[in-house]
Amino acid sequence: MSQAVVLPQVSDEVETTQPFACTVWNDPVNLMSYVTYVFMTYFNYAKLKAEELMLQVHHNGKAYVSYGDKEKIEKDVAAMHSYGLWATIEKAS
């Protein structure tokens, strides 16, 4: 399990000092319960935060789920792919 990442309390607030974001995209296959489980298990997020991010993915089509330098975000994206989530590396804007 990865280390917990220090993130803004409000998850849609952008951490401008971190250049990259692990972005998870909505897809018709991954279950809402499973996506929440992945965010809790891999990022060690509390259930409430994991659910909030999952709902962002579901309703907005995508969510930035972690921020960091390129190396960290590539690691997070690879982990999301291992869970079967559709994730990409985006410049945090």
């Binding site: 590539e74 994206v77 690879a78 792919h81 079967g84 559709w86 994730a87 990409t88 590396i89 985006e90």
Partner: peptide, 18 residues
Amino acid sequence: LRLFPDAYRDDESAANDF
């Protein structure tokens, strides 16, 4: 491709490196 998706959307060379 769904099991091993592109990690970069608009940068083919970065996606291939990944």
